[in-house]
Design a protein around this nucleic acid. Structure first.
Lengths: 232, 232
DNA sequence: AGCAAATCGAACCGCGTGGTTCGAAATATT
DNA sequence: AATATTTCGAACCACGCGGTTCGATTTGCT
């Protein structure tokens, strides 16, 4: 209702000095408090006073660093996204045996995405996506989508090596991801599972997923290579 | 806090006439209002006054039918679940060509699950699942899970007919579902797609998913049958 | 028409909301 | 030590919250 944003923008332009709130430590401290509150209460149920309490920072100070609740929430999600997807796709860079690389990649992927922390974060984002669609879109685009693109590159390389034969690589990449997550993601996100899948479960699902994927897209060349390595 | 449920149950037994709040029309009217408000604002942001307004029913009356906000919300979700999954698995009963049955099933599944309405409902449930895990669990159990079980039965029948060879049928059922949804569900739920997938997209993804599934689990018998029908 | 049941609608409760302000206190910088 | 910058913390705002109550009104049945 109140047009404070426009005013402060004008103030920012008035001087070169950007108002205040530039201490990264304080900023991190606020976001850390915000994380605890937002993640376990959701966007709507969370109150700025809760965050104030949890962060150990005065309300006034928070409003120096973040214009409003929504902006603080977005900053938090941006950070969460970063830590979640960091290093997730490193396995793809090691030119290993194709099957084993897929298995390793699948495991990392499933383990991260279905971990209790990440599921909770995703729930928060999904819940907020209804009222702030751009937030969910940005999360997906800079998170899962970016990883998907890296995986497409990986698949194309495997195709070039004659190991895979895929007509729609983009779709195949999605298929692989969802084969690895088969059932697990939906179960976790709906709280049907109260706990994250065990390592054994993940192993089983991922290995089976890789089998399906290779049976569908693996070439004779790949089969020959695998035959050779097992008989060796 | 207030034990109205137990009391009214006693009252119900006392006379043939059920205490109050038993008019299914009024009840439906309240739930319809609740639907509009809950679905587009989420559980927390929705207010009972909003629902009162939207349903055209007085606050007092609502509290005759539902003990509190949470109970009303649960009743709504229960209803939504029912309408969403109704008739979704009918295609499985028609003993058709296996491949075409899978395609039909996949299409219905994806179309329903990724429709704007259903996505919005799922977001609401997921968002609320953080604070009311049993709600999400119940939704999943009586919705997706129930359908999954039906599909497992279908797959077992196909195995018995010698058309498929599957070691872990339960897992394979999840794999099929997620192959059909490849990428789409996550994109929709995170608002990365602002609109539901087109019919053409669904066709493409489902057909590809079925191909992968059959390449992985189809038997020589199935291949021979398909060969025969195409050459006929 | 008469009666009992259901519904309405408004008021009340205590409390917390997000947002904003501002002087006092603490902290850095010179 | 003096100064400039941040942070604190409390107060204030108008408002809506979920929940509950209750007398007046409407409704439906006999």
């Amino acid at each position: 209702m109140v047009e404070t944003t426009g005013d402060s923008d004008l103030l920012d332009l008035r001087k070169g000095r950007p108002a205040a709130g530039q201490d990264p430590v304080k900023r991190a401290q606020i976001i850390e408090g915000a994380r605890r509150v937002f993640i376990d209460k959701g966007f709507e149920a969370a109150s700025m006073n809760d965050i104030t309490r949890e962060a150990g920072v005065s309300k006034g100070t928070i409003y120096v660093y973040f214009a409003n609740k929504e902006e603080l929430f977005e900053a938090l999600i941006e950070e969460e996204r970063g830590t979640i997807f960091k290093n997730m796709y490193d396995v793809l860079d090691h030119a290993d045996d194709l099957r084993e690389t897929l298995v390793k990649f699948g495991k990392v992927l499933v383990m991260k995405i279905t971990s209790a922390k990440v599921i909770q974060a995703q729930r928060t984002v999904i819940g907020a996506s209804d009222r702030i669609p751009e937030l969910g879109a940005r999360f997906y685009e800079r998170g899962p989508k970016r990883g998907h693109d890296k995986f497409v590159v990986f698949l194309n390389a495997a195709i070039e090596r004659g190991l895979l034969a895929i007509d729609d690589v983009d779709l195949a990449a999605y298929q692989f991801t969802d084969l690895c997550l088969a059932g697990l993601f939906r179960q976790c996100i709906f709280s049907y599972r109260s706990k994250a899948p065990t390592q054994a479960e993940i192993d089983h699902v991922v290995r089976s997923g890789v089998n399906v994927f290779i049976k569908a897209y693996g070439t004779a060349t790949l089969a020959a290579e695998e035959q050779a390595s097992t008989s060796a």
